[in-house]
Design a binder for these strands. Structure first.
Lengths: 204, 204
DNA sequence: CAAATATAATGAACACTGTTTAGTAATGCC
DNA sequence: GGCATTACTAAACAGTGTTCATTATATTTG
């Protein structure tokens, strides 16, 4: 049945078309400000058509997130490849923060926005987010195993390291660092410094 | 002119009526899901009336934030009153995190939501948020002065401490800690542990 | 090949949203 | 009491996510 194969292929192509447009627009304009109608217009289809491929806007975001987490994971593989667990930990932390600072709107979609946790719960898994987190966890386990860091509990270490990174990036993304009255450049430097200092602190 | 005094007083009472209803509803239902119409209905006025007292929804949020930051500041004064800078730093950090965990929706309004930074810029200042931040900064300055912590730069210390606290709370508020697959109770314990461990690390 | 059927896409409709404004009711002033 | 000012409202506008009956297209069947 080559015909239903083609149908399936076309359906997938259509989903790609939609998701690509959605991602671009989410990143450029933000999730809230991007409407189904806008996306439909961009790909020259009627709004209703999107609902034949994705059940609601939430699912659209869910899919975009999967893509984004995939990219972060790639970013980790590229920027944090060291065999040495400690070096890799340093690389991971800097890679994480740099990713967040370089793609603030993507970061927003992935780690700050509220929406798609409903869909995520339904679908059971938490997309490629899990892979990203595990990349950190596994590195930490190695570090603890070889007593390279002062933390002894992996859970606490993972939570702390992630929180530090996320705290720095998200305060910046949501403009809360304004209270510090420093220029944008200095914010970047400050964040890098904070990460480095924190790593120094936890190093054994 | 007692009559214009009364007018002014009535105006302020009206603003209070609105802001109180708004705050309650923002906290109970979330900012996005609370509509001007809902607020108007609750206080038994027409939607348009709200615009005679606040120029838009943003300004409503701005005002609610001011209130919320006031409460956080009170919370600091109550829970972090120690004369000893180091003890006070510990108290501040735990107070901050506990505030966030106890009032997740308020925390959301204050530190995560995107909206009212426009209004904030217009109004110039950043509400009582500044006071809260300064309470931390001043404490850190004392700690550094007496060499009680390993950080030597106040900016970096403030940024790091705040980011750690905010990271922990906001990952929880926005449900990202789901990747860790732990119960809500253990999340609370984990966050407390992370804070304590971090304080241990920075202690001189 | 033509008719019947299954699929895909649409456009209008629904119930919302924030916001503006013309018109109305109530109040203060002379 | 009559005029002017203020306070309020109802309706309208342009937008949102989502659903659904209808139409156009493509496939299968007789």
């Amino acid at each position: 049945m080559g015909i239903s194969d083609r149908k399936e292929r076309e359906k997938q192509e259509m989903k790609r078309l939609i998701i690509d447009a959605a991602m671009r627009m989410f990143v450029e304009e933000g999730y809230e400000k991007t409407s189904i109608r806008n996306i439909a217009e961009k790909i020259e289809y009627s709004p209703g058509t999107l609902y034949l491929y994705y059940k609601d806007k939430d699912e659209l975001l869910y899919e975009v997130q999967r893509e984004a987490f995939g990219r972060l994971y790639e970013h980790f593989l590229e920027k944090a490849p060291s065999k040495s667990p400690w070096k890799r930990l340093e690389q991971i932390m800097h890679a994480y923060v740099n990713f967040g600072l370089a793609h603030p709107d993507l970061y927003d979609l992935m780690f700050i926005i509220r929406s798609p946790m409903k869909t995520a719960e339904e679908k059971g898994d938490w997309l490629n987010g899990e892979a990203c987190f595990n990349y950190l966890v596994q590195c930490i386990q190695e570090c603890i195993g070889r007593k390279l860091i002062r933390y002894t509990d992996g859970r606490t270490a993972a939570l702390s390291l992630w929180s530090m990174g996320h705290g720095l990036v998200s305060l910046n993304v949501r403009c809360r660092l304004k209270v510090m009255h420093i220029s944008e450049e200095d914010v970047y430097k400050g964040i890098e410094t904070a990460i480095s200092e924190y790593l120094k602190l936890i190093k054994n």
